[in-house]
Amino acid sequence: MAGLELLSDQGYRVDGRRAGELRKIQARMGVFAQADGSAYIEQGNTKALAVVYGPHEIRGSRARALPDRALVNCQYSSATFSTGERKRRPHGDRKSCEMGLQLRQTFEAAILTQLHPRSQIDIYVQVLQADGGTYAACVNAATLAVLDAGIPMRDFVCACSAGFVDSTALADLSHVEEAAGGPQLALALLPASGQIALLEMDARLHEDHLEQVLEAAARAARDVHALLDRVVRQHVREASILLGD
């Protein structure tokens, strides 16, 4: 039996998208009243929820406080029902820790932490359903949640994944495409400046192709930005209508 054809001769991917197209994105801000900021995002079938508390005083040991900036604490978890195979994952397993660290690195680069020295910002992200591109969905959800909390940032952080099949870069990989085992790259971008907050790559990719894949991921991240921007504006409009009345 022939394996799955990830990209047809006509240029369509397994789910019908073209190489550079994103999956359908839907997002909502302010989904929890109790938190300082929150957001929910769906990128295709990948669904993530982000909640932000802070900035507030350091919890626990005071020694962790940073004299010149805020401490960003990120925690990642995934729901047991989030993947096809139902599996109990202990809290704080290796994968979750790693993801937490990556998110922390990403948001330390984006949040203006020096405005809140000796304080702490908590970002909790939970993936409810995983269908590829979990890191990107987490970043995008967290961005909206941080904005919802009113924490000043340099810029949005927009993330997207990209892969490489048949000499073509594919944006926003689905689970099927990720599982095929090709090279994949995750990029978090500050779109206005074009600065990269985080770049991570799995598997080997020849340097000749890196630029092409990076370019595809960056373009996709900018597309994500345009969408998130609309979500934020919509949210602000709704909020101001509520306040105005």
Partner: peptide, 27 residues
Amino acid sequence: MLKSKTFLKKTRAGGVMKIVREHYLRD
């Protein structure tokens, strides 16, 4: 990009393993 196209989304589900796959329709 997304907004310029109309996408409908269908989901195929079934089997013991939960298989949820997106299937985009284009015009």
